[in-house]
Design a protein around this nucleic acid. Structure first.
Lengths: 136, 136
DNA sequence: GTATTGACTTCGAGTTACTCGAAGGTGATA
DNA sequence: TATCACCTTCGAGTAACTCGAAGTCAATAC
């Protein structure tokens, strides 16, 4: 059994966010101790992890709520849930590609800056005459 | 020269967002035509692309504004800009790793659902007796 | 010649998902 | 008994869109 702070650390989110998610009903059957403190078992942590990943896919809270509701309805909703996950799978794949492009873009910028900073006075003269690359 | 709608399509964002960014001063020296319509040249598109990537790194608009301001101050700010980009580089690398984990997570869920959906009646009996995997 | 279409403009309100901090309870340590 | 460090609820604040209204303008349709 974990406290809010512990799961927050485990899942790399703030405790505010963990409470927010639980308050939104995103963690089914969340336990409380005698002092009304939230208690997370393995299942609760798994739900939160699922929420985290879906959120990072850009899925709105309300849609996640719907998905979790379907999960609790049992086997009759398997196909519907599968379709949802399949869509998020496509999203996640696109995000991975974007992340690669983004990294490449920034890597190039860093490389540019390193190049500029290593320039000699002569290089600088030459560079200002022929600005072939975006230097910002 | 491109219109708002064109760059929005090129950079895969809404025209609302493109206008929002320009209104925030994130595109230096943005041109207008005789009817006050925004006109984007290559440089403007490049600024927007930069903004897009930095935003996707989670950088707040205000910080991007600062960065762009530094870019316009010239060579004296190169080192500062390099440090900023180096931090975003670290962010982008972390994001790429996260994107991989996220994709793997969702891939597993999709696999689970496919497995469940292909189960025979006997499999279902067996599965409900031994729920070893999270099936939601 | 007018009417509709579509793309553009500004502006201001609304939305989402946090994000923060106040005010207060509890239990352990100094 | 005081000070932590944790927890609680609640309500306000914020960032970054997101949307739609109201209006301008140029081109095509009839």
């Amino acid at each position: 059994m974990y406290t809010v702070k512990e799961v927050a650390a485990m899942l790399d989110m703030t405790d505010h966010t963990v409470r927010y998610y639980t308050d939104q009903g995103l963690v089914p059957n969340l336990r409380r101790d005698g002092h009304n403190n939230r208690l997370f078992d393995e299942a609760s942590v798994n739900w939160l992890l699922c929420v985290k990943h879906l959120r990072h896919c850009g899925m709105p809270i309300d849609d996640i709520k719907t998905y979790i509701g379907l999960c609790q309805e049992g086997d009759s909703t398997v196909k519907e849930r599968y379709e949802i996950m399949r869509r998020q799978h496509a999203v996640a794949r696109a995000q991975l590609e974007e992340a690669k492009l983004r990294l490449a873009y920034i890597e190039e910028k860093v490389g540019n800056y390193l190049g500029i900073m290593n320039d000699t006075e002569d290089d600088i003269k030459h560079r200002t005459l022929i600005p072939s690359e975006p230097l910002y």
